[in-house]
Simulated scan of single mutants.
Amino acid sequence: MASIIAGLAGGLVATIVMTILMMVIGDGGPPPTAALVAKFADGTPEDYEMPGMILHLIYGVLAGAVFAVGVPLMGLNLESIAVAVGLGLVYGIILMIGGMVFWMRMVIGMEPDRDTMTMFGTVHVVYGIVLGAFFGTGILA
């Protein structure tokens, strides 16, 4: 149970850092999750910017719990900061690819430009590194 709580907390911290970075280097538009909400709520992404941000926060927190449970199930150890950051980096890349291919293109039907893809990739890599660092420092161990 402690690993799930640590995963939720780590996911929250990593999502907050990721979101701040997204706001700094992004174009100021709504997150892709707003387009997902808009698709099912019949509106524009701008109409659903805040619900999109909340959905993104929920995804990030839950992804942290998946990391916390999944890494030990694969027989890997998060006690070393270098290993945890490395695993977090790999996880961030996996989330980036899944987000770009599955969510953005297949589910939402977006065809993002190069700048959007660069920002999207960067913030997901940062998410993974922060998540790994959170575990590697043993804050909630």
Rank of each mutant, 00 (worst) to 15 (best):
M1C: 12
V126G: 01
A2N: 15
V101C: 06
A65E: 02
T15E: 13
L78H: 04
L131D: 09
G43F: 01
L36F: 09
I81E: 01
M117Q: 13
L21I: 11
G138Y: 13
V107M: 05
T122P: 09
D115N: 13
V71R: 03
I4Q: 08
A65W: 04
T116W: 13
L78D: 01
E49F: 11
L87F: 14
T122K: 07
A9I: 14
S3N: 15
I5K: 15
A65F: 01
V90P: 08
G92R: 03
I129C: 10
L131A: 07
D113H: 10
G43R: 03
L8W: 04
F134R: 11
S80W: 02
T44A: 12
A133C: 07
M100L: 14
I4H: 03
D115I: 09
H56I: 04
M53T: 12
A141H: 13
G121T: 02
M50T: 11
L62V: 08
G75R: 08
A41Q: 04
G26E: 12
G10Q: 09
M53I: 15
V69Y: 06
A82P: 03
G138T: 13
I108T: 00
G128H: 05
V37Y: 00
T44N: 09
P72G: 05
T122I: 14
T137V: 15
V71G: 01
G28Q: 12
L21K: 01
G29V: 11
L78F: 05
V126C: 03
I93T: 08
P51M: 04
G7V: 00
I5R: 15
L95N: 11
L76E: 10
